[in-house]
């Protein structure tokens, strides 16, 4: 039906799309792993970051990749503030409430963006948006190759932060045993907010990688966030390497499903995997424990 070359290209494309899914899922899984909450505002926050990239490009003429540098601390601060001053206090430390507060936040953010930018679809153009890397007979999109590389580097960095720094150790301590961490003098609300901030910082990177080839409108985050949920569940909630592997895996599955079933029905593949994993092995394929 399709030549092996096409199938190989589709798989590689999927792998590279999956890298961006992985980045988005990384933030989600980190927040889940530590705070044990599902952040429904993740998609809306991604949209915010994408608009920030677009604005920096449109107003200041900044290169989208360069925007990542200032955007990472900005998104970190936004995430920190949101958790510290909104999500944390509003939810009184209850899981169900957090779900609802983040849902409310996502509705507010999405519609504030709508009020500010209208529902216009916006795109940006760079010299390298259309560039390809020729790998033998295969033409690979240059921005996506970069995306794959950056995603792997960011995952590595995040892993290093969690395992080699004091803050990282504190985060892991809180994730494992909140009460105990509190007893040994760790400022738990601060660590929560730091984690939320790190999750949002991942979104800044993802936004910078997406914008050269993708578009943004106030509702675009939703298109990614359901996939990110799937990735998180597949990789094991809270698992950093799981998010990377899960993201890459989902990217390839989606791409091949799309090739054979059509992009429209190909989406169903993702949700069926999602449901099946939840029903059969809620700890995820790569997760070691609940």
């Amino acid at each position: 039906m399709y030549s092996p070359q096409i199938i190989l290209e589709a798989a590689l494309n999927g792998l590279m799309t999956g890298a961006v899914y992985a980045l988005i899922a990384l933030g989600l899984t980190l927040i889940y792993g530590v705070l044990h909450i599902i952040n429904f505002a993740h998609g809306a926050l991604l949209t915010c970051a994408m608009f920030a990239v677009w604005l920096a490009w449109a107003w200041l003429g900044m290169d989208p990749y360069l925007v990542i540098v200032p955007l990472v601390p900005l998104m970190f601060a936004l995430g920190y503030g949101l958790q510290r001053f909104v999500v944390g206090p509003a939810s009184h430390g209850d899981d169900g409430n957090i779900l609802l507060v983040t849902l409310g936040l996502s509705i507010v953010l999405e519609n504030v963006l709508l009020a500010l930018f209208q529902s216009d679809t916006r795109t940006l153009d760079t010299d390298y948006s259309f560039q390809v890397v020729a790998l033998g007979p295969l033409l690979l999109s240059y921005p996506r190759v970069i995306g794959l590389g950056v995603a792997i580097v960011v995952t590595g960095l995040l892993w290093l932060v969690l395992n080699r720094t004091d803050t990282g150790k504190a985060i892991r301590a809180v994730a494992k045993e909140k009460l105990g961490a509190n007893l040994v003098g760790i400022d738990v609300p601060h660590i929560y907010a730091v984690t939320f901030g790190l999750g949002c910082a991942c979104l800044a990177v993802a936004a910078g990688l997406l914008m050269p080839t993708f578009y943004v409108n106030p509702r675009i985050g939703g298109a990614f966030v359901l996939v990110a949920f799937t990735v998180v569940v597949l990789g094991g909630m809270g698992s950093i390497p799981g998010a990377l592997l899960g993201g890459l895996f989902i990217g390839v599955v989606e791409s091949l499903c799309g090739l054979f079933l059509g992009d429209s029905l190909g989406q169903i593949g993702i949700f069926l995997i999602f449901i099946a994993v939840l029903l059969v092995r809620p700890t995820g394929l790569f997760g070691a424990k609940a």
Partner: peptide, 15 residues
């Protein structure tokens, strides 16, 4: 202002 009612919805939910 587009989406103003939804902003209110979301805000009321959080509150």
């Amino acid at each position: 202002i587009p989406g103003i009612d939804l902003i209110v919805f979301g805000g009321v939910l959080v509150l």
